[in-house]
Design a protein around this nucleic acid. Structure first.
Lengths: 341, 341
DNA sequence: TCTCGAAAGTAAACCGGTTTGACAATGAGG
DNA sequence: CCTCATTGTCAAACCGGTTTACTTTCGAGA
């Protein structure tokens, strides 16, 4: 015989299924004596209600979902993700809500995954890596699946939204570099499809006023290296490079060094995301910490509220901080910009 | 009205639920004409079977679970985890199996989580971070939940097991250091409760023959730093330190530098796990790559086999590789020029 | 003494699928 | 022409819970 069911407990306690159910949910008064018998029987049989059956009956999965559109490869080398998940789990664990993860590489697969979530796998989803006019927003609306969008999204009336001000620290960073006398400041962005890439890039453009030294990368070490090479090969090379994440920054820094440039004297370098190792590099890497853990926690928390029926709301977190470190010469002399030999 | 059900499709197509079910599962022959009507109706109504109801009826969740005993904080700064998950997902995605994640900080919470998995959340679990005599093994046996154990486990008759040889690259590394003339080689291990920590430490002991310079850390940057301080304060300090992971190694390296030691001239340093940034540090960090992605893929693959009824088996992967880099003074990669040389 | 309401429980419907047993219609074999 | 196997479909039971409607009992208030 398989796992004990509520029926087994009921007959062991000499009552019906309904009584057992009520005894545990407390939705109906149950006499102390009966309740004690039921609890004892459940204990004895080692019974725990099947979350599946419960979910079917109550239309509540007690789980929230995340569908990852990212390539597993990128996922593997991303500092944001594990910290974010940790935050989500921190919010979920005390409530015994599970997290369902599914990756999908094609749009069709993504749709299937979201449909599966809607059909009972999850009560709501957290949506990451928003695009400018993201198809998932209307899609999820139609599906009627509660969702929390991470990052800025213009028309977020139907869904809650957890935002951060990514632009401010970038402006602050560029201003800092300008104040140090840098005139040729480059930016290696992420894919412009992403809202967050675009926000960072436009903060950069707002300050520098030109996209001459703007290059589009894809967050991998590879493009960090290649685009750095491209920038350093310019007739008048930049004296500072701001990267859209730490992985690209570190790859770029490492490449610049291999060409004999000193950091930060010959080239100032800054990243974004503040990987936990960045402070330990030499030179330590200037970056922007974004507290992904907190964002995960807040997003999950809000999603649970949305699921319980509260109206969606937009939360703006103040959790981006510029971390000035040696790679931008924060604590050294202003650099002497030179052009290529 | 909510999502369409199989009943809606059935009446739309003028048949019964059973016929619809058979049309899709193919378990009974259905005439082409009827099948076409059913498919059309399903298409029309945008119906997709509820995974919940299906799971209840078939006792198959179509999901596998991972219960993380780690503190969310450690999870956040761990290079192993995201890559492992990526591998698991790579195996799961094409089969439309979901991954259910749950963290639990207490033993009771862990047990609850595994019970919940067994009751329908998941068809099997992957068990990480094995301890020497892990309570989870008999527990899961009793629960009757298929499982794949990651890492060495002596008595793995009932469960499949995915192993790697962590000892070989450590031996190789220590031999390399000995060959370079180092005589005082230290080791900062992980918590000795973990099988993998113990394996690495005993490979170290096997070669050095003494535990005088062995210190037990906990994989965090903090203990990496503190234990390095302790080792460097010894009257006769070590000339090389082997850390059980890269995070501790980088923290240690950084600390040693702050005390004015040159790496690798004054102190050779090596890590374990080969964080994706380690090759980009300066000096690049010698480490051991362990291919967590592949391990995740193989573990998930095997778990699916176990679930489908195949007998458990033990797989040993050959995927640990020593990556010699500048931090131990002998590099297969081109060195970076020293600044201000 | 009679009535009414709350308390404690029961029986059955329901959630949305799958699976099994029954049965009519069809066609092949003897 | 009769039998038997096969095909296609239906009706109902089932998975393991929750929830609703209904019954019985008991004590308090009039």
């Amino acid at each position: 015989m398989g796992r004990p069911t509520i029926g087994d407990v009921a007959s062991a306690a000499g009552v019906t299924k309904a009584t057992v159910s009520h005894a545990f949910s407390g939705k109906r008064p149950i006499s102390p004596a009966t309740k004690a018998r039921i609890v004892a029987a459940a204990e004895e049989l080692n019974w725990v209600p099947s979350s599946l059956a419960r979910a079917l009956a109550t239309r509540r999965a007690n789980a929230i979902g995340i569908v990852l559109a990212r390539d597993p490869e990128i996922l593997a080398s991303d500092a944001f993700f594990p910290a974010f998940i940790a935050g989500v789990e921190a919010a979920l664990a005390p409530r015994e809500v599970a997290l369902v993860l599914q990756v999908a590489s094609t749009r069709a697969g993504e749709e299937r995954a979201y449909r599966a979530m809607a059909q009972g796998r999850a009560d709501g989803v957290v949506v990451l890596d928003l695009h400018a006019a993201d198809w998932r927003v209307p899609f999820l609306e139609e599906l009627g699946l509660p969702a929390v969008l991470l990052g800025a999204y213009e028309d977020a009336s139907t869904f809650s939204c957890v935002r951060t001000d990514d632009a401010a620290p970038v402006r602050e960073l560029v201003d800092h570099l300008l104040a140090q006398g840098h005139t040729r400041i480059a930016h290696v962005s992420g894919p412009m499809g992403y809202v967050h890439s675009r926000v960072r890039a436009s903060a950069y453009l707002e300050r520098t006023g030109s996209d001459e030294l703007l290059r589009q990368g894809d967050f991998t070490a590879r493009t960090g290296r290649d685009l750095t090479a491209e920038l350093l090969d310019l007739p008048e090379r930049p004296t500072a490079i701001v990267y859209a994440n730490d992985t690209m920054a570190i790859a770029g820094l490492s490449y610049a060094r291999s060409r004999g440039l000193r950091i930060p004297e010959d080239l100032a370098v800054a990243g974004f995301d503040d990987d936990h190792l960045s402070a330990h590099l030499s030179p330590p890497l200037t970056s922007v910490s974004t507290d992904p853990r907190r964002r995960g926690e807040v997003a999950a928390e809000q999603l649970l509220l949305d699921i319980s029926g509260r109206p969606p709301r937009s939360i703006t977190l103040d959790c981006t901080r510029l971390r000035l470190r040696d790679s931008t010469g924060a604590s050294t002399e202003p650099p002497h910009p030179r052009s290529n030999a």
